[in-house]
Simulated scan of single mutants.
Amino acid sequence: MSDVTRILNEIQQGNRASANELLPLVYAELRRLAGNRMRQEAAGQTLQPTALVHEAFLRLVGDAAVEWDGRSHFFAAAAEAMRRILIENARRRKSAKRGGDARRHPISDADAIADAIADADDLDDLLDLDAALTKLAADEPALAKLVELRFFAGLTIEESANTLGVSVRTVTRNWAFVRAWLGREMKSGEKD
């Protein structure tokens, strides 16, 4: 059992002091995930990778009801927490009282995910991506988790396969499918 898994088990059993031991062990990896994600964010982003890591960590260890199934589960949950934090931040920035005027831009089917937030001024695309991902999660939770791991956490195909417990070939095939699906879904959302 790795130190991370042992400490996660202790936290789960109510030992909050173990959270102090966990952060140094996972901080570098969480910082790398946040850095990958933040490189895709808008240039004027006020949220920094360090703040994203700290907020995600607090959400993860602050919930005593979570049962961690090891290191992979923890990092998958971290990817989801980072996604939620970034979506919440985008919604705050977009809100009318903060001057967020909506603009839409076409997204190519070929690279829907990368293009979704490429424009520094376009928060609608990020919110559309979140809506499409939520819809996907209702029907295909494994594919939605793959998008979170690849896009929001910045994991490679191999790392995603390891985290999901499937083959690299399955992840590669599913990644191609989900990118095309998201492209079509987000494109159809523009007509609404």
Rank of each mutant, 00 (worst) to 15 (best):
T163D: 15
G14C: 02
D101C: 06
R93K: 12
A64D: 01
W181M: 06
A110C: 12
L136R: 12
R39M: 00
R59V: 00
L30W: 05
A102M: 14
L52K: 00
A137L: 11
D63R: 03
A34S: 05
F152S: 07
N9W: 04
N89R: 01
K135M: 06
S72R: 08
D124Y: 13
L164A: 01
E185F: 01
A112L: 04
V178R: 04
L146I: 09
M186I: 12
S72C: 10
A112I: 02
D115G: 13
F177D: 13
E10K: 12
D192R: 08
K94L: 14
A138P: 04
M38D: 00
L146A: 07
L143Y: 02
L30T: 11
R92W: 09
E29N: 07
L133W: 06
P141G: 15
S72P: 13
A180N: 11
Y27V: 02
D119F: 14
A90R: 13
N20V: 11
A76G: 12
A79K: 00
S18Y: 06
S2H: 11
F152L: 04
L123T: 04
A132G: 11
D63T: 04
Q45D: 07
R173D: 05
F74H: 06
L149A: 10
D115R: 09
T156R: 03
W181Y: 14
L60D: 01
N89I: 00
I157Q: 15
A56R: 03
